[in-house]
Amino acid sequence: MSLIRLRNVHKIYSTGKEQVPALQDVSLNIGQKEFVAIMGPSGSGKSSLLSILGGLSHPTKGSVTVDNIDVYALDVEQRADLRREYVGFVFQSFQLIPYLTVAENVMLPLTVTAYSRQEQGSKAIDILEKVGLRSKALRLPDELSGGEQQRVAIARALVNQPPIILADEPTGNLDSATSKEIMDLLRVLNDAGHTFIIVTHNPENTRYVDRCIHLRDGKLCDGDAEGEQLDQASMRDSIASMQPKI
């Protein structure tokens, strides 16, 4: 059963008189507990697709449903509520609030919910425990390494227990060892029931995913549209095809 459905989604950016198509007629389904990688060269529309999936950017045409809710039929405030309940974001540059402690950063999505301070605290500590940062709950983000900061960002994305996690280049600013740690963590969390959609340039990351969606010039590459599961062999082929040819 599909958790996310995109139907004939177009996204056109207008810059003065010029119209730049970022996405063209994209239709795809993403199922519950799937781990999907969106891949493609720069400017292929990956980030636009992620924004539209997260309810952040209105498509020019087409529809997006999450859990059978027509996302863009909602008003801007209802979409904020939907993001809070259904979507967690992880960004390439972590995007932590520098003047809040690790625990406060993790609690951030809960501040606009009905949870009491105590409930917020215990949820934050639980999730920090899962990402291995409980001991650093009272530190400020600046005092942490890049990998640790990304773990905090992941914890923040998970604290509301949203079914969908969208990650934009989650390992883009990390060294290979730390990237592996982060991807291992995402895989564990995916196994725990979260649907993961990541934008990545790194072919290594595709080893962790169930499916790759390839974008080129704003269009889905053949075979990616309707949620085909990649078998391991095709996945390896895919990885090989993405390797730089020296």
């Binding site: 952040l56 405030e77 904020a80 509520d81 809070r84 951030l108 606009v112 994305a157």
Partner: peptide, 16 residues
Amino acid sequence: TREIGIFRAIGFRQTH
């Protein structure tokens, strides 16, 4: 600006 973008992305309403 970025901070406000984060707030909005994680589900803060405009009124928040």
